[in-house]
């Protein structure tokens, strides 16, 4: 009840507009994210993990149950909860600078404050020199850095991340994971860290980044188990460690059968 985010008995059923068919995406999901905690959600495709994030972001309303932020029910999107999207969702008509400035602009910052904030975060994610590029002129990794700077520029209390690194190549992903940890405060004062809800299909990624991993089952999505990752921080030296490997294997065993079934069903 004291979490930054509290999800209480969330269920979400989609009704197809064309066929009237009902799809139960989530069933009775409850969890919470503490103020300085990094929580990941993993699960096979079709387990409703992106739906879960959209509910917390306030983009969609649950069919039943509710989500609280700081104890107050979520009624819609809020700049205190910043979102990073899988396909970046950058504004293609705005440059890197324009994208990062959007949040401060929306919140009524002065021109000078807006520019200063944007430059600070662009530098923080390593995009200085690319301020005046349009998104289509950037690589996938640079687009994701831009999306991260846009999110950070609003200084949200909660970071909601929907498979943010799924679209970049493996090396870039590893680099961005380390960057993300650095920006979150992996090596620093735990009190400075933000609450993070991170959706991914990469088990090793979830283990490497998180304090806790919520494992979802599919059809309908429900929590199978919540695994506490009891590894010291900073994590950098632990990427390929045996301890991390054991967590990976444990979680993989939880979802292997369903993941295999998901492949069969999706190709059918």
């Amino acid at each position: 009840m004291t979490g930054k985010i509290d999800a209480q008995s969330l269920s979400k059923t989609y009704v197809s507009a064309r066929s009237g068919e009902r799809v139960e995406a989530l069933q009775n999901v409850s969890f919470s994210v503490a103020p300085h905690e990094f929580v990941s959600i993993v699960g096979p495709s079709g387990c409703g993990k992106s739906t879960l994030l959209a509910l917390v972001a306030g983009f969609v309303a649950p069919t039943s149950g509710r989500v609280l932020a700081d104890g107050a029910p979520i009624t819609g999107p809020d700049p205190r909860r910043g979102v990073m999207f899988q396909d970046y969702a950058l504004f293609p008509w705005r440059t890197v600078l324009g994208n990062v400035e959007f949040g401060p602009l929306a919140r009524g910052a002065t021109r000078e404050a807006m520019r200063a904030t944007a430059h600070r975060y662009i530098e923080l994610v390593g995009l200085e020199g690319f301020e005046h590029r349009y998104p289509h002129e950037l690589s996938g990794g640079m687009r994701q850095r831009c999306a991260l700077a846009r999110l950070l520029a609003n200084e949200p209390e909660v970071w909601l991340m929907d498979e943010p690194l799924a679209a970049v190549d493996l090396q870039t992903r590893n680099i961005l994971q380390d960057e993300l940890l650095r920006l979150w405060g992996d090596g620093g004062d735990p009190g400075q860290r933000r609450a993070v809800l991170f959706v991914t299909h990469g088990i090793d990624e979830a283990v490497y980044l998180s304090d806790r991993v919520i494992v979802l089952g599919r059809r309908p999505g429900r929590i199978k188990e919540t695994v506490t990752i009891d590894l010291p921080r900073p994590r950098k030296a632990l990427r390929n460690s045996a301890e991390a490997g054991r967590y990976n294997e444990y979680i993989w065993n939880l979802i292997r059968d369903e993941a295999a079934r998901a492949i069969v069903e999706e190709s059918a």
Binding site: A57, F59, P79, F85, F91
Partner: peptide, 9 residues
């Protein structure tokens, strides 16, 4: 959605 979560009216 991106604009909404950034606080746009």
């Amino acid at each position: 959605h991106a604009a909404q979560m950034l606080g746009a009216s």
